[in-house]
Amino acid sequence: MLKVRIIPILTFNGWSLVKTKQFSNPRIVGNPVQAARIYNSRGVDELIFLDILASKQKRKINLNIVKDVIKECFMPVGIGGGVKSIQDINDLLRIGADKVILKTEALLNPTFIKESANFFGSQCISIAVDVIRNENNKYMIYNDLGIDITMDTFTKQVQDLGAGEIILTSVNADGMMGGFDIPMINEAVKNINIPVVCVGGGGELSHYRNLFTNTICESVGSASIFHFTQHTPLDIKNTLKEIGKPVRV
């Protein structure tokens, strides 16, 4: 039976790990290589590393740092930040990335999803889908590119273009540690048939119990709970085991 995945997320600003709240107020939380080493020793299911400023600052992700992070990992690693060409993807795969995560380019030029999935296979192309609840309670894609598109339209489009996975983050819940956006997740997962990593809001173990009880979510990504509490990925797994979810321990 396929196990649920608990995935620590490292967000990087170009020189340090940071953790945002609702995608702003980044707080410095340490060194990426050290963090990767710890997560590897804890045997986590997977790791995600994102340079959250690369596209905005119009620069490439630092391949040397990515290489050092991956060097620590004997589990799968997804990497994102400033990826906009086949060459960028190849550069990351060559140094050991298992999945490449697209965001800005997926919004600006959706056919790039198809191009990269055809070239490298759907399984290594993940899309970061950042969602904000607007004043009419509609779920929209959060971006500063002036693109106005609903979550449901975009996720469906991304799937049809051949993406292998969606990293679904609630901007409203990001870093708040107040629980996951259950209605958003339910709306998103029933709309598509590719794996979805649910992100944003986990702050205590009961939030994960709630997420896995009230949605058909199969994987979760988290950062704050690991940075700011004593809980580890294993604590979350033990919690999910109690409610009958298949976990790898």
Partner: peptide, 11 residues
Amino acid sequence: NLRTPHLGWNE
């Protein structure tokens, strides 16, 4: 009714 790709840890 399962999601594809088959992605994750399985025995």
